[in-house]
């Protein structure tokens, strides 16, 4: 198996491993992520996705199996080198600021790593322009909106030129506009740089934009595939506490109400199109 940029090989992890009654938080999970992919890792609260995030960046180590990043097994020795290759953005935008201004904040990790001043200035500028926050470089982070804060957090990660960007529920505390801003930013980044992105989320609208979805359920990998393939499973997902994208929910509700739709629709436009065909079929 090509282990790609990041891979889990039969990974099991149990909190309180000495207590035999405790169910593993992650049980025998394997997957591999290739360079340049956008992967969404989805699952209900308690499905194991946050534990997976912690295993990805070495906050936790597997009880069994291996986590490999760029071919290297994650251990206490390799941890720091591996972390320097990955950027992470967390859930709460207020808990990740250290700088007094937006640009200080983005420069923080660079400065810590002894990057020369000139290069630092250039990288900060570049990272802020990638998330379209250059105009705010002298603002105080605390006065920004949630969406803007998360974009700055993404810039902070980008300034380190990571090979891999992990977003751990990065949109779940944002209002709808903030969520759209962040998702748009990721989409643009993907187009311009081809950066590998892993988004951990329970928002299936967000997951629908990824190339591949991994669904977690009760600590196990339930299914893996393209958004279209995964969403075809319909009720199976809702029973797991997840939700279908809006257009698909509407398609199902319309079918239940007796409208004989023939296709599954992922977007509002497609759905309205088919409804219109019904209507025009005089």
């Amino acid at each position: 198996m090509n282990s790609g940029i990041l891979s889990f090989e039969n990974v099991t992890f149990t909190y309180n491993a000495e207590d035999e009654k405790v169910r593993p938080a992650v049980a025998n999970v394997s997957f591999s992520i290739q360079q340049g992919e956008w992967i969404a890792l989805v699952g209900h609260n308690g499905s194991g996705k946050s534990t997976i995030a912690k295993l990805m960046n070495g906050l936790l180590f597997p009880g069994e199996g291996n986590v490999k990043v760029m071919g290297q097994a994650m251990t206490e020795e390799t941890l720091w080198e591996i972390r320097s290759q990955m950027g992470m953005v967390f859930q709460n935008p207020d808990n990740q600021f250290v700088g007094a201004t937006v640009q200080d904040d983005v420069a923080f990790a660079l400065e810590n790593n002894g990057v020369p001043h000139e290069i630092m200035v250039e990288r900060v500028h570049e990272a802020l322009s990638q998330v379209k926050m250059e105009d705010y470089k002298d603002h105080e982070p605390h006065h920004l909106s949630g969406g803007q804060k998360q974009r700055v957090a993404i810039a902070g990660a980008l300034a380190m030129r990571p090979k891999l960007l992990i977003l751990d529920e990065a949109t779940s505390m944002l209002d709808p506009q903030g969520r759209t801003e962040v998702i748009e930013t990721i989409r643009r980044l993907r187009e311009s740089t081809g950066l590998t992105v892993i988004s951990i989320t329970h928002d299936l609208e967000e997951a629908a934009l990824a190339e591949r979805i991994i669904v977690m359920n009760q600590g196990r990998k339930h299914v893996e595939g393209s958004p279209t393939d995964v969403f075809k499973r319909g009720n199976e997902l809702t029973e797991m506490g997840l939700d279908l994208p809006f257009a698909m929910r509407m398609t199902h509700l319309l079918q239940e109400a007796g409208v004989n739709l023939q296709e599954e629709h992922m977007t509002d436009d497609e759905l309205v199109d088919e409804l219109w065909k019904f209507y025009s079929k005089a």
């Binding site: 509407m250 509700l253 007796g258 004989n260 409804l275 019904f278 005089a282």
Partner: peptide, 21 residues
């Protein structure tokens, strides 16, 4: 709500004699 919308659309299509085959 989504449920009301589904019902309303089904109703409107049925009145036009379309929708269900």
């Amino acid at each position: 709500t989504e449920e009301t919308l589904a019902k309303n659309i089904a109703l409107a299509l049925a009145e036009e004699g379309r929708g269900s085959l």
